[in-house]
Amino acid sequence: MDKQFNTRSMIFTLYGDYVRHYGSVIWIGSLIKLLKEFGHNEQSVRAAISRMSKQGWVKSEKRGNKSYYSLTEQGKARMEEASKRIYKSESPKWDGNWRILVYNIPENKRRLRDELRKELVWSGFGNLSNSCWITPNPLEEQIHRMVDKYGIRDYVTYFSASYEGMSHPKTLVDKCWDLNEVNEKYSQFIKEYSEKYYIDQNLIQKGEVSDGTCFVKCASLVHQYRKFLFIDPNLPEELLPDRWLGNSAATLFNDYHDLLQPRATRFFENVFE
């Protein structure tokens, strides 16, 4: 049992790593049973899924007297994007251009502005100056989805441009992101999880770990690693600092995930409906 994880956040992890591969829909009873493994009770699961439904990530459907929850189009797109970034094996290729998003959202829509900021950070944008955000990655699709979701087409201007100075592009990166702090977090992740990986590798080889334990360990691993989506802007190699630890962390994550996945999936399939 592991209650250090927020219920809603854990549900996102389960949808992203399991449910979306099984038709993107799950019976609430199965979800409750799966989350019980992490110490979450029925009440907190129902409250969290209801909140996710209000936010447009999932939708509910009654079949007889059972409630099923499936990902909406918005939910599927978010899971797809998150999965691409979580299971990536290398940094994205760069075409040398920067994408610039500028918004001018009125004061009476302040809450909307806060939501938009969170979304931009999640997508990997960096704040260059007040209301001006940049990224070297081609995120046009995400931007159009975001603009439509919040209905802010009238307030947003979007450019693709080349950087003409006044200094090195890496100086621009330093203004927008604290990559040293991200690197430090990668260092902590590697230290903690390489130790766990070797212990579990040994136990699994001896057949001393149950499927349920592998499920909890695997979902917890994804859950912890997923946090990097909120702080690592996924920059191209040319813009990363020397001795960047992101790639080593990704290799460790993928190896550990591959180790736990078969037994974890078996457990999930036994509970899933």
Rank of each mutant, 00 (worst) to 15 (best):
G151T: 07
I86W: 07
M79I: 07
K54C: 01
N41D: 08
H40E: 07
T171F: 12
Q43C: 03
R226L: 05
P241W: 08
K149P: 04
R113C: 11
Q188V: 04
C214H: 01
P136M: 05
N41T: 04
K33R: 15
I231G: 04
S60V: 02
F159Q: 01
S123V: 09
K84M: 08
E115W: 10
I190G: 04
G39R: 02
V271A: 10
R51S: 13
R51D: 14
Y69L: 04
A77T: 11
G16M: 06
Y158H: 13
T171L: 14
F272L: 14
I143M: 10
F215K: 00
V222C: 13
L172Y: 10
I100D: 06
D95A: 08
S70P: 01
A161N: 04
S24M: 07
E37M: 01
S70G: 15
A77Y: 12
I49D: 00
R20G: 08
F125W: 10
R99Q: 15
R63E: 04
R85E: 02
I231R: 02
W122D: 08
P233S: 10
G165C: 03
G56V: 07
D174Y: 01
D211T: 04
G165S: 01
Y186K: 00
A219S: 14
T265F: 09
L240C: 12
K3L: 05
K62E: 00
V182E: 07
N247H: 09
G64L: 03
Q55L: 11
Y18I: 02
H257R: 15
I199N: 08
Y197H: 13
A77V: 13
L120G: 11
K84Q: 14
N127C: 14
R99V: 05
D17E: 14
I49Q: 01
K170W: 00
D200P: 00
S210E: 15
T251D: 13
V216P: 03
E80L: 11
A82H: 10
T72K: 05
L139K: 06
R111P: 07
R46C: 01
N41S: 09
F215S: 04
S44K: 01
V25T: 14
